[in-house]
Design a protein around this nucleic acid. Sequence first.
DNA 1: AAATCTTTGTTAAAAATTTAACAACCATTA
DNA 2: TAATGGTTGTTAAATTTTTAACAAAGATTT
Lengths: 210, 210
Amino acid sequence: MFKKFKIPDATIGRLSMYSRYLSEADEKGITTVSSQDIAQATGVTPAQVRKDLAYFGEFGTRGVGYNSRELYTYIMKILGLDKRWSIAIVGAGNLGRALSKYKGFQQRGFDIVCIFDNDPKKIGKKLANINIYPLDQLEEKVKELKIDLGIIAVPASAAQEVADMLVGAGIRGIINFAPINVTVKENIILRRVDLAAQLEYLTYYLEETR
Amino acid sequence: MFKKFKIPDATIGRLSMYSRYLSEADEKGITTVSSQDIAQATGVTPAQVRKDLAYFGEFGTRGVGYNSRELYTYIMKILGLDKRWSIAIVGAGNLGRALSKYKGFQQRGFDIVCIFDNDPKKIGKKLANINIYPLDQLEEKVKELKIDLGIIAVPASAAQEVADMLVGAGIRGIINFAPINVTVKENIILRRVDLAAQLEYLTYYLEETR
DNA sequence: AAATCTTTGTTAAAAATTTAACAACCATTA
DNA sequence: TAATGGTTGTTAAATTTTTAACAAAGATTT
Ligand SMILES: NC(=O)c1ccc[n+]([C@@H]2O[C@H](COP(=O)([O-])OP(=O)(O)OC[C@H]3O[C@@H](n4cnc5c(N)ncnc54)[C@H](O)[C@@H]3O)[C@@H](O)[C@H]2O)c1
Ligand SMILES: NC(=O)c1ccc[n+]([C@@H]2O[C@H](COP(=O)([O-])OP(=O)(O)OC[C@H]3O[C@@H](n4cnc5c(N)ncnc54)[C@H](O)[C@@H]3O)[C@@H](O)[C@H]2O)c1
């Protein structure tokens, strides 16, 4: 579909930001935006914006700028957000609960369709009206509900095991919130989100001036 | 203290990972580890490990490797985790609740000491035994409790306002979970954590094979 | 219709980061 | 004490990413 030679990871993250700004702009009735506008709103440079977009095609008009709605639609398509995606969360704890109650994912095309846990007290209950199942129903549900994405929200000690099960069940992309390195086979897309590490980034910079 | 010319951001994140592995290794009684071992455990290359460490000094012994506990201590010091840090969370919603109940932060030296919200129904209550205060007590509490770090867990529409208040109150580092670009003055360390963007990274790569 | 003003897309340059290679060094063994 | 094996720290090379510059192109003005 699009030329997908090697695009910087950071570009993908920025496209998400751009798309949010564009949808806002469009809602406000701003039909045309410049790379300058996008840059200002998202905290990058105009050159960066143009470069990021140039990987995927020509979306603007010289001397004018970009049509907000049009560019928004293009970016959403690039990100695969012209379709909806089903997600399974594993781990109905603090984090699993927060994620499953979050309305923002739906708005971006994500449906959390089921939750898994190994705690008998939680199985059979619901979170945000989403059923909690035992892990042995993982494969069945992934197939039945055509689930592509998995979120690991279990303790680090169980994360690799859960990752293996998700992959075994046919899931193709995983977000891992457990603070441990998890490995998956080649063709699975894995993303680690380490919240403590984010805090530690702050303390690294503040440490010397304390 | 340490030579802090420009260190890649990614290096800081990897140091967090290394430190986790090292503490595990130490607990298991593994006194010596090689860059190879660290690399394998954290999913990077041995050269990368050595390069990352070389920014800060010489911690190993050629022909031998690194002393686990010693290197752990060094890295924790580099990250500023030889001291404890106090955190204020703003937003006692889904995410704020999950973060405040999370035990893992304490273990890394972080104490969530108070929570702020503007909802009268939540003010005066507690989350994980931490008091929820109204926003107009922010400055007072930041000073009283010597709070350095703030976490923004409010809706995007309130994020900039909250960031300004945090900075005004004297906070020096901020994690922003709201999906919007927030700006702060030069000397404040700001980190954005965009969870939806993480999912969108997955869909970007899966999009074409769906 | 020519001149001017804007803003994109692209190319080149610069900067940053990662990877690779290897000399230096330590420990162990012969 | 010399030789061997193993691992670091460092330097150089390769790669990736960002920044800058500007020609190309559309809109507006004279
Ligand atoms: N809560 C946070 O704010 C936060 C912050 C940073 C990182 N994390 C990480 O996210 C993960 C989840 O954190 P949490 O606070 O929600 O933990 P939690 O203890 O509240 O919840 C973990 C859940 O996983 C379930 N579980 C345990 N083993 C399982 C298994 N093998 N299969 C299925 N379910 C299993 C438990 O029953 C529990 O419901 C942890 O790895 C944690 O380190 C959480
Ligand atoms: N929950 C998630 O899993 C999740 C995932 C991704 C991003 N986020 C982002 O994190 C932020 C918080 O998400 P959430 O799900 O916890 O939202 P939430 O609506 O559950 O909670 C928001 C809280 O902020 C409080 N609040 C609102 N305006 C405020 C203000 N001006 N000052 C102080 N408090 C105020 C509300 O009273 C509420 O308690 C949002 O920006 C959201 O987009 C959340």
